[in-house]
Computed example of a mutant assay.
Amino acid sequence: MNKILSLIYSLGHLILAGMEWVLLGWAIRLYRQSSSLAMIVLPIVLASISYDNLILGIGSFIGEGELLKNLSMVRFLIHYLVVPLFIVVGVELAHRAGAKWANSVVRILSWFVAFTLAGIDVSTHYIGLDLVPVRFAGMLRYTVAQVSGPPIITIVVNIFMLLIGIGLWFRIKWPWLFVGTLVALIGNGIPSSVVGTLAGSASEFVMAFSLLLTEECSQFLGKQIESLETKKIEAVIPK
């Protein structure tokens, strides 16, 4: 039974890793269409969570040892460095949606906050990190030996994105960023010791998908506004 569950969990993570590269391609296409800064940062995030899922997916095949442990150390480092970048993506999407608070100062400040949070996470959690092998439903992964508490910075980032999602919901009648972020918040809040890592990883995929949908919506609305303005100008200028 454990072998079957291990295969399901491993394949689930590998499928997510592949789907996140599809999202990465989508993000690059959206960037080429609009030069959106959010679509420069989001591919970095997508590549990192794809790596996360890849290592989780192949852990049982590699087996316990230094190789998997070192790959897992990289996985944790990337996680601590990249998760705060969601703040930059959120602020950029709010700016593109026309939120007045997302001005140039706030956009620059978002980078400072993201790097500060990443630095805090690395200094407090990564330095001196001790990983131990753990099996859930037969799937092998390396995780923190002693968890000191909930992932505060991840939760803070999710709450920040949730607030941006609420703002976009009211501003442009677009609820899907809020929905995607809420799913991520719930998924990250469920202890992996109870349900494994697949739920949290899937919820991060949903959040990334909602970010891309939001950018697609922003571009569509932008084109509509541009088209209406062009028609108004053509109506005023005599032929």
Rank of each mutant, 00 (worst) to 15 (best):
P238V: 15
E215F: 12
V156Y: 12
V144H: 00
K232P: 00
F178L: 15
L14K: 01
P150D: 00
V91A: 08
S218Q: 15
F86I: 10
L56C: 07
I62Y: 00
S50V: 00
G119H: 08
A118T: 04
V194P: 01
W174C: 08
V206P: 02
G187W: 01
I62W: 04
R75C: 02
S36L: 11
P150E: 01
P175F: 08
S72P: 02
V132E: 09
I55F: 03
W101S: 03
L11F: 04
I120H: 02
F86P: 03
R141H: 10
K239A: 12
G149M: 02
E226A: 14
Q224S: 08
V132C: 08
G200A: 10
L221W: 03
E92W: 08
V206Y: 06
V89G: 03
V179L: 14
S203V: 06
S203E: 05
I55Q: 01
V132R: 10
I172G: 05
L77F: 12
I233S: 11
T214P: 13
G57P: 00
L14A: 01
P150M: 07
G90E: 06
A114H: 09
Y31V: 06
I190T: 04
L129A: 13
L162W: 09
M19T: 09
D121S: 15
L131N: 08
A184H: 05
N103W: 07
V41P: 01
I152E: 10
A118F: 09
A145C: 09
E20S: 12
G189I: 00
A114I: 11
G57F: 04
H13I: 02
P84R: 07
A38C: 11
M1V: 13
T154R: 10
V22E: 04
L131Q: 09
H13Y: 00
S104E: 15
R96S: 14
V147C: 04
D130R: 15
G128A: 09
L163Q: 13
G119T: 05
V195A: 13
S50C: 01
G222H: 05
L5A: 09
W169G: 14
K69M: 00
V83S: 04
V74R: 06
S6I: 02
K69V: 06
F61W: 10
V194I: 13
V183K: 02
I44G: 11
Y80C: 10
F76E: 09
I40V: 15
V106K: 04
G128Y: 07
S34M: 06
M207R: 13
D121M: 15
I155E: 01
L23F: 03
W111Q: 00
